[in-house]
Structure formats: structure tokens, C-alpha cells
Design a protein around this nucleic acid. Structure first.
Length: 299
DNA sequence: TTGTTAATAT
DNA sequence: GATATTAACA
């Protein structure tokens, strides 16, 4: 595995490729703010030194995090790093956005799966808080669960891609109330002297990553033109998968008429229903249900 | 072995 | 309180 869990010895700067890792050791109290000098995608580790002093002893004999562990590094998720993260997630889609794959796509030396997993956890939490808890969303999560089962079985690199636009609400016009603020995960920090670390701007003109987890993909019909980081992926045509997904949703909606219609499906008009009924030989409908189009009738 | 989640630390 | 790390668990 090329994930050597750089925990020990932290001499990760062996090779200076594009993605070099800036290991930063400094006393905890210092915090000499030269953080703005990181221009490229580089992980900056901050090492705490005096952690041995506070041998924790909360209550239960938890493994002392400070005793034997050589050093704890803190990955500074700069905007560049986070941008890579979001791009990777965006390219993989929510289904494939797992730490190992994100790590591969990011290609940031020195970053571990744990780092990515942690960041992904926060990412998902914020996204979940932001997203409206609608029914179709729950259904979608259920389908994701099914994929997880399959994924656990194969544990391989199956290319079961879903359209990258896996965020059902964002980006749709008219969804947000006029006065609502757009969902941003890292809230825009007010710059107190220096540039905030989360200063965000969309990475590409085509993929408009709206801050945390809100990649707004324009309805581009051609091949996905985002510059992939690795190039090992070939995005399958999204239209076919779209059709499959729509077909699935429609089938589910038909089989479970008591559930609210998923977003994007419109109920048939009364005229079309009557026409279809007459075509099937039903010429008249009971008068009580004549107000189909209106509000729900009470009974 | 990997991903997810919860606990813990800073 | 926010964020990152670590441990536990499936």
C-alpha cells in the first residue's frame, strides 16, 4: 500500500513533486502566521511538541493520545487542499466518494486516508445539515445504502457511476427563497487582518463548486469536460444513467402512489387523465371525484 | 482491510 | 464552538 500512514518520523518531504508537503513544526504558542505563503496544494502539518506534558487522564483508561504516539500532525486544510478535495468528490460522485479514492484523486503527498475520512465526515455532516430532509432524499439515501452493500461485497473498483449531480436541490432555479443565503459550509470568515483560509472561488468555469459540497454542474450535454486530476476515469454518458434513474423513480412513484411525488415529476393533468380513461373505455367518472385537479377532497 | 461514526483533543 | 485526530465498529 502506498499509504504508509506517515505517522512516524514525518519525513515525508522525500520527494518534491507537484504536491510537496510542508511539514511545519512549531511551538504551540507561537503560531507565526506565515500561513499565507502556501500557494500550492501542499499539506501543512503542525506538530505539537509539549503534548507529553498533558498526559491525559480523562477518566477511563483511554489510550493516552500523547504518551507513545510520536507526534500528532494537524493537516491544515487550506483552500487549495479543500478545493482538491471537493473536486475529487465532485468527480467521483457521492457514491464513489470514499476516502481512498478521494485520496487518489487528490494526489496530495502526505495526506492519509484518515485525514480525508475526517474531512469527508465533516463534509457530509454539513451537507446533511444543509440539505432539506425531504422524502425523495431519503429514498435516494436508501438506494445509496444498497450500493454500499454491493460495494462491500465486491470491494473492488466497480464503475457504477451516477450522474455527478447528486445534489438534488442545489442549483435548481427558484429553489432557494429570494432572501435565503446560499448554503456555504465554511462560513465566510471575516478577514481579521489576513486572508481567511477558506477564501473560496470556483475552480473551473464548467464545474461551479459552490463551496462545501455544492457543486453546481451546468446542464452540459457533451462529455464531462472537467479536467480530471488523474485521467484514469472515463465518465460514462450521463444521459443513459439519467434515464435509468428517472425510470426507476417513475416506477417507484407508480407503485407507491401514496407517497408524494419526487421532485421533478408532475401529476398528470385532469384532461390527460380523462382522455386516458376514455381511451380505456371508462367514459364517466363518479361525480365525487370530479375535482381531481383541485385540492384534496375531505371525507 | 476499508469506510463510517463517535469520542476526544486542540 | 469549530475543527482535526484517533479509536471503535461493521
Amino acid at each position: 500500500m502506498e499509504d504508509q500512514d506517515i505517522g512516524e518520523s514525518k519525513s515525508v518531504d522525500t520527494t518534491n513533486h507537484d504536491d510537496n508537503v510542508i511539514v511545519k513544526e512549531e511551538k504551540l504558542d507561537g503560531e507565526t502566521g506565515d500561513t499565507k505563503s502556501e500557494k500550492t496544494d501542499s499539506v501543512k502539518f503542525q506538530k505539537k511538541e509539549d503534548e507529553t506534558t498533558k498526559h491525559n487522564n480523562k477518566s477511563t483508561g483511554i489510550k493516552n493520545l500523547s504518551g507513545n504516539k510520536p507526534s500528532r500532525k494537524k493537516v491544515d486544510w487550506t483552500q487549495e487542499l479543500h478545493k482538491k478535495f471537493v473536486q475529487a468528490v465532485d468527480q467521483l460522485g457521492v457514491d464513489q466518494a470514499i476516502p481512498s479514492r478521494i485520496l487518489e484523486l487528490m494526489k496530495v503527498d502526505g495526506l492519509t486516508r484518515h485525514n480525508v475520512a475526517s474531512h469527508l465526515q465533516k463534509f457530509r455532516m454539513h451537507r446533511r445539515n444543509i440539505l432539506p430532509k425531504e422524502d425523495h432524499n431519503h429514498r435516494y439515501i436508501q438506494s445509496r445504502e444498497n450500493h454500499r452493500q454491493i460495494q462491500r461485497q465486491y470491494n473492488g473498483f466497480q464503475q457504477q457511476h451516477r450522474p455527478v449531480m447528486a445534489y438534488p436541490v442545489w442549483g435548481l432555479p427558484g429553489v432557494h427563497p429570494p432572501g435565503a443565503v446560499p448554503p456555504l459550509w465554511p462560513p465566510p470568515l471575516q478577514s481579521s487582518g489576513q486572508l481567511p483560509p477558506w477564501h473560496w472561488r470556483p475552480p473551473y468555469p464548467t464545474v461551479n463548486v459552490n463551496a462545501w459540497g455544492c457543486p453546481i454542474v451546468p446542464p452540459v450535454t457533451g462529455p464531462f469536460s472537467s479536467p480530471t486530476v488523474t485521467g484514469t476515469f472515463s465518465t460514462p454518458p450521463a444521459t443513459q444513467l439519467d434515464e435509468e434513474m428517472v425510470d426507476q423513480v417513475v416506477k417507484e412513484a407508480i407503485s407507491k402512489p401514496w407517497l408524494p411525488l419526487p421532485l421533478g415529476l408532475k401529476p398528470p393533468s385532469a384532461e390527460s387523465v380523462l382522455a386516458e380513461l376514455s381511451r380505456q373505455g371508462i367514459s364517466a367518472v363518479p361525480s365525487s371525484s370530479s375535482s381531481i385537479n383541485g385540492s384534496r377532497r375531505l371525507r
